[in-house]
Simulated assay, not measured.
Amino acid sequence: MTDVKQLLTQMGSVDMAMKYRAHRELARLIDRETRPDHSEEREQLATELAMELAATVTSKAPPTNVPDNIDTVQVPKHPIAVRRLICTFLQQIASDKQVPMIAPLLNEIEIRDEVRGVLQRIGTTAAAHELVGATKQLGTEFRIGVANAIGAIGSISTGESFDALSELAMDPDTEVRMAAQRALKRIRVPHE
């Protein structure tokens, strides 16, 4: 099997030819694994990509004026551009099994929109649950996207989704309210 970690490292290269070849090879791999007879390989690849998306490395802490005795910090393993591409690939192959790995990344402002898109594409109850948790985050555009994602998952939404959208429908921001109201029209709450 192709070394996904190596391809992702090459995609972060400054060498444009190397970056292009790595992106093309990974796109071919994703395309091959989306075939119906490759479900096990697809799941393995999705898990590997999700792990790489969440992977961190230890780096020297940047200097500050505050004496805090922190010498190292955890930073994402891959540059933002590569992490966004990983999300694009995950939208094609991710499943419920990757939700616990990628949901915490909704808190990373640099990639949270892309992670929201992956969860929306997964479209399961577990993904909707994680999106509900993101309705409290800051940013009008992000909360509109979260409302739309919950609405898009609509047919399997839970009472929790309905409650979160109902709360957003009373948001002080007009655009957030309108998005939540539109999303509420698309969801069906199962009878309990």
Rank of each mutant, 00 (worst) to 15 (best):
T2K: 04
D3V: 07
V4F: 01
V4C: 02
K5S: 12
Q6L: 03
Q6A: 05
Q6V: 05
T9Y: 12
Q10P: 01
Q10T: 06
S13T: 01
S13I: 01
D15M: 09
A17V: 13
A17H: 15
K19D: 02
K19A: 05
A22W: 02
H23K: 12
H23T: 13
R24F: 06
R24E: 15
L26Q: 08
R28E: 14
L29T: 09
I30V: 15
I30W: 14
I30P: 14
D31S: 15
R32L: 12
R32N: 13
T34W: 02
P36M: 07
E43P: 00
T47L: 15
L49S: 05
M51I: 12
M51V: 13
L53M: 03
A54G: 11
T56R: 06
T56D: 05
T58E: 11
S59D: 07
P62K: 12
P63Y: 13
T64A: 06
N65Q: 03
N65L: 05
V66W: 02
V66F: 04
D68L: 02
N69F: 10
I70K: 15
I70F: 12
V75L: 02
P79H: 13
I80V: 10
V82A: 05
R83A: 09
R83T: 07
L90T: 09
Q91T: 08
Q91V: 02
Q91H: 04
Q91W: 00
Q92L: 08
V99K: 06
M101Q: 14
A103G: 07
P104E: 09
L106S: 04
E108P: 03
E108V: 09
I109S: 11
E110L: 07
E110H: 07
I111R: 07
I111G: 09
G117M: 00
Q120N: 13
R121S: 15
I122T: 12
G123Q: 04
G123H: 03
A127V: 10
A128I: 14
L131I: 11
V132R: 03
G133F: 14
G133N: 15
A134K: 13
T135E: 07
K136I: 06
L138R: 13
F142L: 09
I144E: 06
I144D: 02
V146K: 02
A147E: 14
N148V: 10
A149F: 01
G151N: 07
A152V: 05
I153L: 01
G154A: 13
S157G: 02
G159K: 12
S161E: 08
F162E: 06
D163E: 06
L165G: 04
L165E: 06
S166P: 00
L168G: 01
D171M: 03
D171N: 09
P172T: 10
E175F: 01
E175S: 02
E175M: 01
V176E: 00
Q181R: 12
A183Q: 10
L184G: 04
K185A: 14
K185L: 11
I187L: 04
I187N: 01
V189P: 00
P190G: 10
P190T: 08
